[in-house]
Amino acid sequence: MTYLDHAATTAPLPEAVEAFAREAGRLGNPSSLHAAGRAARASLETSRERIAAALGAEPTEVVLTSGGCEADTLAVVGGFLAAREADPARDVVALSAIEHPAVRDAADGLASRHGARRRVLPVTGDGVLDLDALAGLLAAEADGLAVVSVMAANNETGVVQPVEDVVRLVREAAGTRVLVHSDAVQALASAPVDFAASDLDALSLSGHKLGAPVGIGALLAQRTTPLARVQHGGGQERGVRSGTVPVALAAALAVAVEHAVASRVAEGARLAALREELEAEVRARIPDVRVSGAAVPRLPGFTHLVLPGADVDALLFLLDAAGVQASAGSACEAGVTQPSEVMLAMGEDERTARSVLRLTLGRTTTRDDVAELLAVLPEAVERARVVGRGR
């Protein structure tokens, strides 16, 4: 099997699995006051401290969640509701046109249920946020802005977004009144993250993209950032994310985050070299292929191919039958293949947006994996184009 879908989920890190197994045998709820509860709490807070130290945050800024989607929802919805409670005139949510479905759907829900005014910021043909559009929005509506959300790097193309510039522009126009959030779920393994230095109000991350088990993530949120509760219960995690905190999963997340930070430079260089080899060979074998975002900075493990005329459902089926596992885009779209929202935002038509292949490399990817892909991809594309011509 050749697995090239690490952006969907990556291979569990053995050290993270060991940390999980060790803590999973512990008895005690971290909210309990007896000895077992205190021991569980001590383990939980140690994990929180390790995550914070690795990412340039304070332990109190680490709000543990079930994953990246929940962290995004807490930032966007919780940030908006808190801002509007403080000032009813602040009812604008701004997001880039290429945000993860968790952010898009959160903004849609705020518009339909709470009357939020949703502003979608365009991107260039390379998939980079249009900063002039953001500047124009700030000039026109800074007083009404509640939340601005721009991802650190896109989850389909891997294109890195100008988050530093976003923070600077928002701070110049609105100071700290506007919550600035970034979904760093894909970026954290490959890009440096220093939460304090970033001046972001909130940043999302997900454990299973880093080698922790599915079911754990975090929202880094400044201590002064107001967030409203989006679910109710016992008031855990600063009172904004109720529910018994999973001690074992937190331990695994701490290990995975530390590993990602420690290996980032060397692993990034290795993946970039593999990607360059892959893209050069694909271009040689499929001359009309296009690589999305090739002219701008991308995460090193991402290759997003536009294969004109290829039916993506047929292509994925053919690759899977040949032992190569890949995807057409975000795995968070409930398994439904549809025109890529990201490609549409980049100015492509629906037919082109249905003819894309996302290949994402990870810790376990080798040159043999690349060779196995290249051995089957050209024929699979040709056969998928035959299917495409019949539709």
Results as ranks from 00 to 15, higher is better:
residue 5 D to G: 14
residue 10 T to G: 11
residue 14 P to K: 05
residue 15 E to K: 07
residue 17 V to M: 14
residue 20 F to A: 06
residue 21 A to C: 11
residue 24 A to E: 06
residue 30 P to I: 00
residue 44 L to G: 00
residue 45 E to R: 11
residue 46 T to K: 12
residue 53 A to T: 00
residue 55 L to A: 08
residue 56 G to W: 07
residue 58 E to W: 04
residue 71 A to T: 01
residue 72 D to T: 08
residue 76 V to Y: 02
residue 77 V to I: 13
residue 78 G to N: 04
residue 80 F to P: 02
residue 84 R to N: 08
residue 92 V to W: 04
residue 96 S to A: 12
residue 100 H to P: 11
residue 104 R to G: 05
residue 111 A to P: 02
residue 111 A to N: 12
residue 112 S to G: 11
residue 114 H to F: 15
residue 121 L to A: 10
residue 125 G to E: 08
residue 128 V to D: 05
residue 130 D to I: 05
residue 131 L to F: 02
residue 135 A to C: 07
residue 138 L to N: 05
residue 140 A to S: 15
residue 144 G to M: 00
residue 147 V to K: 04
residue 149 S to N: 03
residue 149 S to Q: 03
residue 150 V to A: 01
residue 152 A to T: 03
residue 152 A to W: 00
residue 154 N to L: 00
residue 159 V to Y: 07
residue 163 V to F: 04
residue 164 E to V: 08
residue 169 L to N: 11
residue 170 V to E: 00
residue 179 L to D: 01
residue 181 H to N: 02
residue 186 Q to T: 00
residue 188 L to C: 01
residue 192 P to K: 01
residue 192 P to E: 00
residue 194 D to W: 06
residue 194 D to T: 09
residue 195 F to R: 04
residue 197 A to N: 00
residue 200 L to W: 03
residue 201 D to H: 06
residue 203 L to F: 10
residue 205 L to I: 14
residue 206 S to A: 14
residue 207 G to T: 02
residue 208 H to R: 10
residue 209 K to V: 05
residue 210 L to V: 10
residue 212 A to K: 08
residue 213 P to S: 10
residue 214 V to I: 13
residue 216 I to A: 04
residue 223 R to D: 15
residue 225 T to S: 07
residue 228 A to G: 03
residue 229 R to E: 15
residue 230 V to I: 15
residue 241 R to K: 15
residue 244 T to Q: 13
residue 246 P to Q: 04
residue 252 A to V: 07
residue 253 L to Y: 04
residue 254 A to G: 08
residue 258 E to Y: 06
residue 262 A to S: 12
residue 264 R to Y: 01
residue 265 V to R: 05
residue 266 A to N: 08
residue 269 A to I: 10
residue 275 R to E: 00
residue 282 V to I: 09
residue 288 D to H: 06
residue 289 V to W: 01
residue 291 V to G: 02
residue 292 S to P: 03
residue 295 A to F: 07
residue 296 V to K: 06
residue 298 R to T: 14
residue 299 L to D: 00
residue 303 T to M: 05
residue 304 H to A: 06
residue 307 L to D: 00
residue 310 A to N: 03
residue 317 F to V: 13
residue 320 D to W: 01
residue 321 A to R: 15
residue 328 A to G: 15
residue 329 G to E: 07
residue 330 S to D: 12
residue 334 A to F: 15
residue 336 V to F: 13
residue 337 T to A: 14
residue 337 T to F: 06
residue 350 E to H: 09
residue 357 L to D: 10
residue 360 T to Y: 10
residue 363 R to P: 03
residue 364 T to E: 14
residue 366 T to F: 09
residue 366 T to G: 04
residue 366 T to K: 08
residue 368 D to Y: 05
residue 371 A to V: 10
residue 371 A to Q: 12
residue 372 E to T: 15
residue 373 L to G: 04
residue 381 V to I: 10
residue 381 V to M: 07
residue 383 R to F: 06
residue 383 R to V: 14
residue 383 R to T: 14
residue 385 R to A: 13
residue 389 R to C: 11
